[in-house]
Design a protein around this nucleic acid. Sequence first.
DNA 1: TTTATTTATGTATTTAACTACGTAGTTTTG
DNA 2: CAAAACTACGTAGTTAAATACATAAATAAA
Lengths: 161, 161
Amino acid sequence: MNIIDESGILAISTRLQRLSEQLRKDGALFYKSYGIDFEPKWFPVIYTLHHKEVLSVVEIANEIGYTHPSTISLLKELEKQKLIRSKKDKIDERKRLIQLTAKGQELIEQMKPVWDVMKKVLGDIADNQNNLLQAINEAENKILHQSFLQRALQLKSEEIK
Amino acid sequence: MNIIDESGILAISTRLQRLSEQLRKDGALFYKSYGIDFEPKWFPVIYTLHHKEVLSVVEIANEIGYTHPSTISLLKELEKQKLIRSKKDKIDERKRLIQLTAKGQELIEQMKPVWDVMKKVLGDIADNQNNLLQAINEAENKILHQSFLQRALQLKSEEIK
DNA sequence: TTTATTTATGTATTTAACTACGTAGTTTTG
DNA sequence: CAAAACTACGTAGTTAAATACATAAATAAA
């Protein structure tokens, strides 16, 4: 499939999605191999709460980099699993403060060694002649500085001259 | 957001998805700047048919690397846009043969210069100290050779020893 | 101190992919 | 050549994210 060599925009994005989906599925299976019932998608919330203890919905959303509706649906799942609980903020009644349950904290302790293995393996997969994580960082930074669209429009106008 | 440094599995996949979504949206806007009404997601099908001329549904799915149901829905959109048309294969009545319409072919000619610009910009964004495309290739190859799960399970069993 | 604006949360809908399943032709095999 | 297996296509339903919209509480401004 050399579509990418010929034009790219779509190809790169679908390949990135594939790669990520594969990693996600394998991640779930790997947890299972430890007898742990944990979905990779829950990780960012759990991990954030592990370090920050108590946060509101929007604060979590910002931490994990998702929109708040997406975050809410994750929180619902985690609440169903009894890994987190929430209570109203007494100072600001609009806020729902989220924190880990005891069960959630215990689970984290169980998962820590699993995360270590995952981290190593992921590092190994990403570490090649061209390091994937660094490549992503570098590409993200370039786009942050000037978006794909801005760059394309600029090149277009230069060519017209 | 240093989640990735601490554990990774989810973080890498969501970041990849973000990056790809951004590129996709900007791609659509860039087409629009040329007055072309074309969605980046249509590209693989159109591009494939540009080179192969006539293909069945499943053949296209294989070429673009999507499942056939996904491909069918793309084909429906493209048929609605009158960019492709289809006819039954007279030899194998199960098959639907797809090809570009005249309108589709004209559109491709209009898009070619746009693709050139996109290719350059994408190349520029991806080409850093660590080349993103090559990094993706290398990571994909590693996984192809031995999956994330296999690697993780192996490391796990080594550590138990 | 009303009124307007902003912030926090939640719901509904959309999108783009997937898997699972069903049906109808085609090919292989006993 | 009839039965079994396979292939091609299509539909239905699921998932994980997003947007868009709605409401309520808090804050700022007139």
